[in-house]
Design a protein around this nucleic acid. Structure first.
Ligand SMILES: [Mn+2]
Ligand SMILES: [Mn+2]
Ligand SMILES: [Zn+2]
Ligand SMILES: [Zn+2]
Lengths: 160, 160
DNA sequence: ATGTCAATGAAAATCATTATCATTTAAACT
DNA sequence: AGTTTAAATGATAATGATTTTCATTGACAT
C-alpha cells in the first residue's frame, strides 16, 4: 500500500552537476537498451531537479503530483534499471530506505548529519588510494566501496 | 514466518579476539541494566563461538538446534539491545540482511568478497585520520562511519 | 516464598522492495 | 498510416527482514 507522507527536505552540499535536457534523457534510456516512455522521461526529469538524494517513495510522491498516472512499481523498476547501468547511484545510510542520485561524473562519498539529515558530498583521493592499498594487501581485486561518515553538523551543534 | 535454510559458511579473516566465559556474559547483561536470562546467555554463547559475522536468522537457526525454546523475536530484540549498548556491532553489506558481531576491543572495517562472501577485517589508522580531517573540513562532529570494501578474493579470481 | 515488572514466544503487523499478470504502448515492420 | 509484437505499465499481491503486540512466564528484590 502506498503512503503519502511528507519527508523533511534537508540541506545538501553537492559537488558540481551539469544540467541535463530532455533529449539527453531519451538518449540515456536508449543507451540502456530500453524503450523511451513518458514515465521514464518524467522520472529522469524529477531526479534532475530538486533534492539530489531521494528515496523511491519520495520520488514517487513528487511525481505523483504532476503525473498521477505513474505507478510506484515503475519508479522502483526504473531506479533498479538505472542503478544496474550505473546511471544512478544507490546510497544506503544505516538501515534506512535507499536513496538514489543521478551518478555525477566525479566519484564521491557522503557525510551525513544524524540530527537534521543534511548530506555533504566529498571526495578524498588519499582515502581512495589507501582503500586500494588495503585491498592489495589482502590480494583482493577491488570493485567498489561504501564510505559513509556520520556526525553532527555545525548548525545542529549550535542550536542545541 | 520462520525459515530454516542453510546459509553457506564462508571464510573470515579476523582480528584478534579474546575468549569470553559465562560469568563475563552475565556481567555484560547486567551492565546493560537487563535481567540475566538463560536465553540471553545462550545468545551470547552462540555469538562468541563460530562465525563472527552472523545474521539474526543464522543466529536463530544455530540456537534453535540446542535450545529450541528460544524464539526469534528474542534474538532480534537482544541483538538490538546489545547494538544500542555497543556490545554488538551491526554490519550492513549492500542491501543484504544485517550481520552482527561481538564488538572487539579494536576498531576495524571490512573487506568483502562479492563472489564467495569471504569477510576480511582490517584497520587502517591513516584512513581513520583522513575521515576526521574530512569531517573537520565541513565542521561536523564525527560520531561514526561505515567503510566497506567490495571485491573479489584471490581464490575466487583463480578458480574462475 | 511472594509480588512485581521485565522478558519471552507465538503470531500478527509493518516497511521496503519485488513479483505477478492483465492491459497498454513503443517502435519495428508492412 | 495501420499492423504486429514484445516490452512496459500499474494495480495488486507477495516477499523478506525486522518490529510490535499481547498473553504468559520468570528474574530477582523484598
Ligand atoms: Mn551523492
Ligand atoms: Mn568485523
Ligand atoms: Zn544537522
Ligand atoms: Zn571469494
Amino acid at each position: 500500500m502506498t503512503k503519502l507522507v511528507k519527508g523533511k527536505q534537508n540541506k545538501e552540499v553537492l559537488i558540481e552537476r551539469e544540467p541535463i535536457d530532455i533529449e539527453s534523457f531519451k538518449k540515456m534510456i536508449r543507451q540502456m537498451g530500453l524503450k523511451v516512455t513518458k514515465q521514464r522521461v518524467h522520472i529522469l526529469e524529477a531526479m534532475s531537479e530538486g533534492r539530489a538524494h531521494i528515496t523511491a517513495q519520495e520520488l514517487f510522491e513528487k511525481l505523483n503530483k504532476k503525473h498521477p498516472e505513474i505507478g510506484f512499481a515503475t519508479v522502483y523498476r526504473f531506479l533498479k534499471n538505472m542503478t544496474e547501468h550505473s546511471l544512478v547511484t544507490e546510497v544506503r545510510m544505516g538501515g534506512f530506505p535507499a536513496r538514489y542520485e543521478l551518478t555525477p561524473n566525479q566519484h564521491h562519498d557522503h557525510l551525513n548529519c544524524t540530527r537534521c539529515g543534511k548530506i555533504v558530498e566529498f571526495e578524498n583521493e588519499s582515502i581512495e588510494e589507501l582503500q586500494l592499498a588495503v585491498a592489495k594487501k589482502f590480494k583482493f581485486k577491488l570493485t567498489g566501496h561504501v564510505l559513509e561518515l556520520y556526525g553532527e553538523c555545525e548548525q545542529c551543534t549550535n542550536k542545541e
